[in-house]
């Protein structure tokens, strides 16, 4: 027997869903505001030479520290490198040439972005292999499970989580043994 849904429950559900949605939306708009402002301010200074030099610095690492970016390293050698970047930019060198210059002088260890060539391809092979292995094992396991899986009957409600669907969708006066909408 079907129980009659009172419109007030539908309103209640809509209000709850709306509230939860609103709460979830708050960070989106906070983020939007902050990011748009940040984006504008970033673009504003992106044209000058100093910004270009800074951009190159972020692509280089200190030759003496471990994983420390050139733009924030305080060692004297990094000071010299930063000065050289500005001199070369002022002389008309392209950013790519400047990065290549430092790579030739100190080796690949000063490149923040690992070149995807030569021996380094081993690492990218490892990454690809890891993802492929994990994906293969996953697909194999899931297919094996699927073979033994039972088809789900329409309207089946799993006991442990039934309360969630009841809360999402059902009015208060629904009898506990009432079949879900899908079975009707």
């Amino acid at each position: 027997m079907h129980s009659v849904r009172h419109p007030v429950f539908a309103i209640g559900r809509a209000v709850t869903a709306g509230l939860v949605g609103a709460i979830a939306l708050v960070p989106a708009f906070v983020l939007a505001g902050a990011l748009v402002i940040a984006d504008e301010s970033r673009d504003a200074g992106a044209q000058d030479l100093e910004a270009q030099a800074l951009q190159i610095e972020t692509q280089l690492l200190c030759p003496q520290c471990t994983n420390k970016r050139l733009d924030v390293c305080e060692l004297a050698i990094c000071d010299d490198m930063r000065k050289l970047i500005r001199e070369r930019l002022a002389a008309g060198d392209a950013p790519g040439d400047i990065i290549l210059f430092f790579s030739n002088r100190y080796g690949d260890r000063v490149l923040a972005d690992l070149p995807k060539s030569g021996f380094n391809l081993v690492l990218f092979g490892w990454v690809g292999g890891s993802i492929a292995l994990v994906a293969l094992v996953g697909v194999f396991s899931l297919l094996r499970m699927r073979r033994s899986a039972q088809p789900v009957a329409s309207g089946f409600e799993e006991g442990a989580d039934q309360w969630l669907d009841e809360q999402i969708d059902a009015p208060e006066d629904r009898p506990p043994d009432r079949p879900s909408r899908g079975a009707r």
């Binding site: 939306l25 789900v152 009957a153 799993e158 669907d165």
Partner: peptide, 29 residues
């Protein structure tokens, strides 16, 4: 998702609102 198994309508019912809100917020962004 529930444990063990879920009928299609259960999945749809549970995912409907989150997906709509996410889509709306992403569009807003």
């Amino acid at each position: 998702l529930p444990w063990r198994q879920a009928a299609t309508e259960t999945v749809v019912r549970r995912a409907r609102m989150p997906l709509l809100v996410t889509a709306a917020a992403t569009l807003a962004l």
